[in-house]
Structure formats: structure tokens, C-alpha cells
Computed example of a mutant assay.
Amino acid sequence: MTPQELAALHCRCFTVPRPWTAAEFASLLPDSGTMLHTSPQGFLLGRIAGDEAELLTLAVAPEARGNGEGRALVRRFLEDCSARGAAAVFLEVAADNAAAIGLYRATGWSQVGQRRGYYAPGLDALVMRHDLD
């Protein structure tokens, strides 16, 4: 997927936090620590530094949700992180995003913190962690 395609899908999936621009995707993709996993109707973007990784964003087209695409992307990302030597993976998710929180819990993530007012307009973020074997 091109930065423009990533941004277009991201825009269809998010209002809070705000959708990312093509320029933001383009700035991340060349980095050797960046991991992009795609599927027919979605993508997951993450990065790794040393023995820690971060899930930056996950987007699945609204009409494709609930068919396992997000779960498959998360699993592929975790396998990639493990293969690259990560011991733990982190993410932030909007506290009101019940579907995403459910997906993350179902794939082995646990809440380890909360960032009050992290997203505009004053929406909290849950910090989640997945330990890799």
C-alpha cells in the first residue's frame, strides 16, 4: 500500500485520534525499524527499537470488520516482533474504543497504564502491553 492508500483507509477508520496523513505514513515507512503488515481490507503499522516494539496504528475498513482481518494482522505483527528479537510490545488505544480493546485483549494484551486526556478532546488512552516468549 502506498502512503496515500494508507492515509485514505486510515481516514475512513478514525476521527479520534485524528487520521494520519500520507506525509506522516511516508515519513515512517523508510525506517528499518518500521513494520507494515497489510491485508485486503486493512493494515497494521508498527516499529521496533531494541527489545521493545510498538503497535502504532491498526486500520480495518468498516465494512470488513468482524471477519478476523484485524486479529490476523495483530498475530502477524507479533510474530514479526518476536522474530526480530522484541521481548515486549506496547500500544495506546482510545479508552472508548471497545472493539479495539476487545481485539487486543483477545490476542493477549493487558492494560498496564492510562494516559489521561491523551487524545483530543480530552479522551484517555489505555496503554497496553504484550509480552513475547
Rank of each mutant, 00 (worst) to 15 (best):
residue 65 R to V: 11
residue 87 A to S: 13
residue 133 D to N: 12
residue 104 Y to M: 11
residue 5 E to W: 01
residue 32 S to P: 11
residue 57 T to I: 11
residue 117 G to C: 06
residue 88 A to R: 15
residue 126 L to R: 10
residue 87 A to H: 14
residue 43 F to L: 07
residue 126 L to S: 01
residue 22 A to T: 08
residue 96 D to Q: 09
residue 117 G to T: 09
residue 106 A to P: 03
residue 2 T to M: 07
residue 73 L to N: 04
residue 76 R to D: 14
residue 133 D to I: 08
residue 98 A to N: 05
residue 118 Y to W: 02
residue 77 F to C: 13
residue 111 Q to W: 02
residue 109 W to R: 05
residue 64 A to V: 05
residue 121 P to G: 07
residue 38 T to N: 11
residue 82 S to E: 12
residue 31 D to V: 06
residue 117 G to D: 03
residue 40 P to A: 00
residue 78 L to I: 10
residue 133 D to K: 12
residue 88 A to M: 07
residue 104 Y to L: 07
residue 106 A to I: 00
residue 119 Y to K: 04
residue 131 D to C: 14
residue 110 S to P: 00
residue 67 N to I: 11
residue 41 Q to S: 12
residue 58 L to R: 12
residue 44 L to W: 03
residue 69 E to H: 01
residue 37 H to V: 13
residue 77 F to S: 13
residue 28 L to R: 15
residue 119 Y to G: 04
residue 105 R to D: 07
residue 1 M to Q: 12
residue 32 S to A: 15
residue 97 N to D: 12
residue 122 G to C: 08
residue 116 R to Q: 09
residue 131 D to L: 15
residue 62 P to T: 04
residue 34 T to E: 04
residue 121 P to E: 10
residue 36 L to S: 12
residue 99 A to E: 13
residue 34 T to M: 01
residue 90 F to N: 02
residue 9 L to M: 13
residue 8 A to C: 05
residue 7 A to R: 08
residue 43 F to H: 11
residue 24 E to S: 12
residue 86 A to Q: 05
residue 74 V to F: 00
residue 102 G to C: 03
residue 122 G to T: 08
residue 100 A to K: 03
residue 87 A to D: 12
residue 125 A to N: 06
residue 52 E to H: 11
residue 21 T to L: 13
residue 56 L to D: 02
residue 6 L to I: 13
residue 18 R to F: 08
residue 100 A to E: 02
residue 71 R to K: 14
residue 110 S to H: 15
residue 15 T to H: 15
residue 14 F to R: 07
residue 7 A to P: 14
residue 90 F to E: 01
residue 109 W to E: 06
residue 33 G to Y: 03
residue 118 Y to G: 04
residue 31 D to I: 00
residue 133 D to F: 11
residue 52 E to K: 02
residue 93 V to A: 04
residue 52 E to R: 10
residue 79 E to C: 04
residue 19 P to R: 06
residue 18 R to W: 09
residue 66 G to F: 07
residue 54 E to W: 14
residue 126 L to P: 04
residue 57 T to L: 08
residue 96 D to A: 10
residue 22 A to G: 08
residue 122 G to V: 09
residue 1 M to I: 15
residue 64 A to I: 06
residue 93 V to D: 06
residue 87 A to C: 08
residue 41 Q to G: 04
residue 101 I to C: 05
residue 92 E to F: 01
residue 26 A to F: 09
residue 105 R to T: 12
residue 83 A to Q: 13
residue 41 Q to E: 11
residue 104 Y to K: 09
residue 40 P to R: 00
residue 18 R to T: 11
residue 11 C to E: 15
residue 70 G to P: 05
residue 62 P to D: 01
residue 106 A to W: 01
residue 45 L to P: 00
residue 72 A to G: 09
residue 113 G to P: 13
residue 41 Q to A: 14
residue 14 F to P: 00
residue 60 V to S: 02
residue 41 Q to F: 10
residue 2 T to D: 04
residue 67 N to G: 07
residue 95 A to K: 03
residue 47 R to G: 10
residue 121 P to S: 04
residue 86 A to V: 04
residue 4 Q to F: 03
residue 9 L to Y: 03
residue 61 A to Q: 06
residue 21 T to D: 02
residue 31 D to H: 12
residue 66 G to A: 05
residue 98 A to G: 08
residue 115 R to K: 14
residue 5 E to N: 10
